[in-house]
Design a protein around this nucleic acid. Structure first.
Lengths: 177, 177
DNA sequence: TATTGTTATACTCTATAACTATA
DNA sequence: TATAGTTATAGAGTATAACAATA
């Protein structure tokens, strides 16, 4: 039925690049998350949001722009920005031009947290990620991964995927003992 | 108090490598997770577990070995393997040599799911990740990321981290509007 | 005493759908 | 009608700590 023609298997280098990418990013992210939590009680997403805001000239972004850069769903962004606002690290205000819009601004406290968190963040990156690499390795990594990123961004996420019924997901009638 | 000497900032290539790595792996993982869910109702972790088991000669691994390779906490592994077992994709049995141990084995059904899921998985990797890369890019990526992975593995996770009190995390007394 | 694995529990995060308001 | 954002809700996943059994 769902017999898709089997694509040719990946060769060792392709597999190696994929597996190493997944493992490296998982470990790196895990460690960075711990550091951010310990140093500033930030989740990674929250850090990304703050860092994104801190990078703009006026510390300001529309919600939609933030969502596009960092989070996958609108509601998820609302949730995270809500947490940041409660903590006083960002402020929300109605958008000037578009009355539907909401503008998010990083606060002084937000910048302070960012500053408090950065040194440890960089330490982790150096020790865990950059340390074993030569200059040219880093250059090549940046170049190649940037190509991939641009490619990914250029591909529209395909919508309308067919859903299947649940099989492995947790089921209320979990008969298994 | 916690005045760590500010490390020198990262240069553009270092930052580029880091940001691109995070973005590429996030997008890739996100897309792959959707594919695995649609094609086989598997989460990424579950797929990793099945794939790990399927890779061994006898389709068998000790719990601890699985945890080291894939998951970060023991209880998390117990949870995931429990789901897979309920779905009939793996079986658990007492370990032969060590009476404390538990051996996990992939079942026929597990191998079927794996086979059903692989083609689409490879498709995603090709289209999203490998497509814009030249052979030498892939080789270099695999080489450099493998260096990083080996380095990461060689670093013992530092234990005994000081905990902080919650600040940004959701608080029960969420006074906000 | 140390290790293997499970269980109970609490909590974070994410996504979907329904909804409001403006363009 | 389409878009921006919020809310309600439900569910998955994870970690921590306590626990049982064996080495």
């Amino acid at each position: 039925m769902t017999e898709e023609a089997s694509p040719p298997p990946l060769d060792p280098a392709e597999l190696g690049a994929y597996f190493a990418l997944i493992e490296v990013s998982s470990l790196l992210r895990h460690t960075v998350e711990q550091q951010l939590r310990d140093a500033g009680d930030l989740s990674y997403v929250q850090f990304q949001l703050l860092a994104t805001l801190g990078d703009t000239a006026d510390g300001t972004q529309r919600m939609t722009e933030l969502a596009d850069g960092v989070v996958y769903s609108r509601s998820g962004l609302t949730y995270q920005v809500g947490l940041l606002e409660k903590a006083g690290l960002v402020a929300r205000s109605p958008s000037a031009e578009d009355d539907r819009g909401v503008t998010v601004t990083i606060t002084e406290a937000g910048r302070d947290v960012l500053a408090r968190v950065f040194p440890g963040h960089i330490d982790v990156l150096r020790q865990l990620f950059l340390e074993p690499l030569a200059r040219e390795d880093i250059d090549s990594l940046a170049r190649v991964l940037t190509v991939v990123r641009d490619h990914m961004r250029s591909i529209p996420p395909r919508s309308a995927k067919p859903r299947r019924k649940s099989a492995v997901r947790q089921s209320p009638t979990g008969g298994g003992a």
